[in-house]
Design a protein around this nucleic acid. Structure first.
Lengths: 153, 153
DNA sequence: GGTCTTTTTTTGACTGATTCCAGAATGGAT
DNA sequence: ATCCATTCTGGAATCAGTCAAAAAAAGACC
């Protein structure tokens, strides 16, 4: 079939993961490419902008497939809906703002697998250590010092 | 009123936190004392066993109050409902089993605030680093090697 | 000890996120 | 070009958690 996929690289990525190349999948991947940390809702919106109509269901499904295939990583900080990102494999972590929920990447200070030293705790076979930093983002920090703390309304 | 609270220690704990001592609150605290890492549903069940009838809402409310007061800690590994525990203050982390969702405590290998070195990433003011280890629990590990991987049914 | 004020709990409906189901449509290999 | 497996559609269901108003209980005061 003639397929004018926006990006051949993306198609290849899918093919290599033994996944069929479908418009929604490509669109989801590209959306995440440009908007890291997007939540499902945002992805749905972005994908619709790009290829017109898609069911919410399809997006959920695609995201699950891509996650299972290891093409995207699902991050789910306590209290907010699932978010997704393309950066996989490299050891980086996240900072979450307690005020507004903003999320940013942080390359691990340690440089590599942090704290993985506890590699066999309680008989568990550990394969990943996920670090989430909690704090306040610059915006919220300044808002706090200005408004004197009513950010939690 | 004559109040035969099961534990005076628990009441004191609440009082010290400037929280009123109510049956549901005491019951929730005691439930968590004996069942660390219980999720909301489990807490509701445990509390009902102990004091008869409580509304689900009350338990949610109590848990929020206790969390806000710092008496319990809310942990929420991706993919499972919120869980709660009494161990607060000491720097320990959690291992989550990818197979069955089991959760266990792990004292940080590093001994103290891990990776907090990234204490000012991207302008965020970081106040806590939460580490979650992902892996496979002993039970699931043996099941896997036995059944040859159909644990994900 | 009895009464009052405030905080909690109850009740019941409701939202938001995510999944399940069954049928229709589509992609890829032959 | 055709066939089969996979994916997508649309809608209903589930599950965790929240909201709001009224009833009940806790602690303070007299």
């Amino acid at each position: 079939m003639v397929q004018r996929m926006s990006s051949t690289a993306t198609s290849t990525l899918l093919r290599d993961a033994a996944l069929r190349v479908t418009r929604p999948r490509v669109a989801v991947l590209e959306a995440l490419e440009h908007h890291p940390h997007a939540d499902t809702d945002a992805v749905v919106r972005l994908v619709r902008e790009q290829i017109g109509t898609v069911s919410t269901q399809a997006v959920y499904d695609v995201l699950r497939a891509l996650t299972a295939a290891g093409l995207v990583r699902r991050i789910e900080p306590a209290g907010s809906p699932a978010r997704f990102e393309r950066r996989v494999g490299d050891n980086h972590h996240h900072v979450v703002c307690r005020g507004c929920g903003a999320l940013a990447d942080v390359d691990c200070a340690v440089g590599e697998a942090p704290c993985l030293s506890a590699s066999n705790a309680r008989g568990f076979v550990i394969d990943e250590a996920e670090v989430t930093y909690w704090g306040t983002c610059p915006t919220c920090t300044s808002r706090e010092s200005t408004t004197q703390g009513d950010a939690l309304t």
